[in-house]
Design a protein around this nucleic acid. Structure first.
Lengths: 116, 116
DNA sequence: CATTATGCTACGAATATTGTAGCACAGGAG
DNA sequence: CTCCTGTGCTACAATATTCGTAGCATAATG
């Protein structure tokens, strides 16, 4: 059961949590089902952002999480760091994002989300 | 619905956590960015499932979470309970799912997820 | 009544996330 | 060089969420 400490294991997503089936779709669903992951991809849709700009864009989420997610997303090859600084989607990341774009239309047209 | 006292403040998903912008897409992204939410929608793609069948389909996730998610999804009008028992996607839920179906193809073709 | 299945709750332990502070390392300006 | 400012990133205590297991009440069936 690993051990429990304040935070010594925040470096790598050792495994695909929650899905032990091995099916790629499950791994992807699991990766995207973590807090801020979808949001980060979304915020990078138009342009590259620095880690701080990204943080602000994400309702000032904790840098801890942003960094964890960024590491995971880089590991999945969906996001890359720019040598000049900042992060942006890879070609694959953009490909994924394109699948999500219709979501906005769906959200806007779906009553339960309209007046939140 | 549900009261909890083990953890001090665990009464209800009172708000759209993490997104205070009010934009529907953020609310949706946030809803879907919770553990098991995407997976649950995914597992309901073909047929209605009982709560237990759903639990098993989701790698035996804790009934606590399954229930919380189901409540949230019902609140969002994406899932509904059958009078005969069990859960299934609403028309809106299926509409959302349709947007996600291409994801499987993407996952299968995306190297980082192939051999996990 | 015994059995099986349903939806759902309880709750301690394990993990994850939040919020705030601050580090080391570039530039750029003075 | 020294004082800024911005970068990516880490530390860590406080919270919140999730996990795992047990178990309830109800209903349908044998």
């Amino acid at each position: 059961m690993t051990k429990r400490q304040a935070s010594p294991a925040r470096s790598a997503p050792r495994k695909v949590r929650g899905s032990r089936t091995g099916r790629p779709i499950m791994a992807l669903l699991d990766l995207l089902g973590r807090r801020w992951t979808l949001r980060i991809v979304w915020e990078l849709r138009d342009e590259a952002l620095t880690s701080r700009a990204l943080r602000e864009a994400c309702d000032d989420a904790s840098p801890t999480v942003i960094n964890d997610r960024l590491t995971e997303l880089r590991g999945a090859g969906l996001v890359e760091t720019l040598e000049a600084g900042g992060y942006r989607l890879t070609d694959g990341g953009r490909e994924l994002l394109d699948l999500f774009l219709p979501l906005q239309k769906f959200a806007n047209g779906w009553p339960p989300f309209k007046t939140r």
